[in-house]
């Protein structure tokens, strides 16, 4: 059978360049390596960084899972899945444990990733110091000299203004005790999953043309002051209205018609598996 295009969309030269960038990124944990981000069939800002990483590392035996904000079925995830499936023919799955490559936007799956898996995160803004320093030239110098007052200052300002750090997502982390890194807009809830992760984590920013990485078993610490320890989002006593989970990241859903607020697992696949009794977790399953 003749294929209409290269395997995994890219020509071999492009894949080689991206793979070389990835290797460098893995060698220097948390360091943003520039690469020649390519034009993709989807627009920049819609996951082209993650997509390029996925296409560069995927092989015929790989099994791919793509999620967007915890959901396997949102438009962005479905489109990326379709593109990769069409150009590679690899198996697509929704099961976290089955996948060898998981491309994600805004979440790290609830189920702990294991050795041999690769998590690819889509990154809109890779530079953690950007809001205090506009110039790329200057931020490069700041990283080189390990001068991260700017990142700390942002947290200090939040504490001064709101009495606590209020980073909704993308709370900066120290990687391997050297580079401060933007973990991509995952909630603080997911930050600890990066610390000593068994799976390799690759982060791709298409618009900003940067790739960086957290190799397996790397120290990843969330920035926090001595007297204001790092905290994650709290859902108090709420539980998922579908699977009853109390140990997962919940979405708040407001039903305006019934004037009711209810909570639901953000990771849709994890929720489904719990309902089906495939996996266990904290909290009772209620069929209310």
């Amino acid at each position: 059978m003749t294929r209409l295009h290269q395997f995994a969309f890219f020509d071999e030269g492009s894949k080689k360049e991206i793979r070389r960038t990835i290797l460098k990124a893995i060698s220097i944990p948390g360091y943003q390596v520039p690469f020649s981000s390519r034009e993709m069939p989807i627009a920049r800002g819609w996951g082209t960084g993650g997509l390029q990483v996925t296409l560069a590392i995927i092989g015929q035996e790989d099994v791919l899972k793509v999620i967007d904000q915890g959901s396997d079925e949102s438009v962005n995830a479905v489109n990326i899945k379709k593109l990769v499936e069409k150009t590679t023919g690899v198996t697509i799955t929704e099961k976290t444990a089955e996948a060898t490559i998981i491309q994600s936007r805004h979440r790290i799956p609830e189920q702990t990733l294991t050795e041999g898996q690769v998590l690819v995160l889509q990154v809109p803004a890779p530079e953690p110091l950007r809001s205090v320093e506009k110039s790329e030239r200057q931020t490069k110098i700041l990283h080189a000299e390990e001068e991260y007052s700017g990142a700390w200052l942002q947290l200090f300002e939040q504490i001064m203004k709101y009495g606590q750090t209020n980073t909704g997502a993308d709370h900066p982390v120290y990687v391997a005790g050297r580079y401060v890194m933007a973990p991509s807009p995952i909630p603080r809830f997911d930050n600890h999953k990066m610390n000593h992760s068994e799976a390799l984590i690759l982060l791709g920013a298409g618009r900003e043309k940067k790739i960086y990485a957290v190799p397996p078993y790397t120290d990843v610490r969330s920035l926090a002051f001595e007297d204001y320890p790092f905290t994650v989002e709290s859902f108090a006593t709420e539980a998922c209205h579908l699977c009853g989970a109390t140990d997962t990241y919940l979405d708040e859903i407001i039903d305006a018609d019934k004037d009711k607020v209810y909570y639901q697992c953000n990771d849709s696949h994890h929720c489904l598996e719990r309902v089906n009794g495939v996996i266990e977790g904290k909290g009772d399953i209620s069929y209310a």
Partner: peptide, 16 residues
């Protein structure tokens, strides 16, 4: 106060 803290943070202070 943040501006003053910036210099202290740079000097290694991590106590709000």
């Amino acid at each position: 106060i943040g501006n003053i803290a910036e210099k202290l943070i740079a000097a290694g202070n991590r106590h709000v």
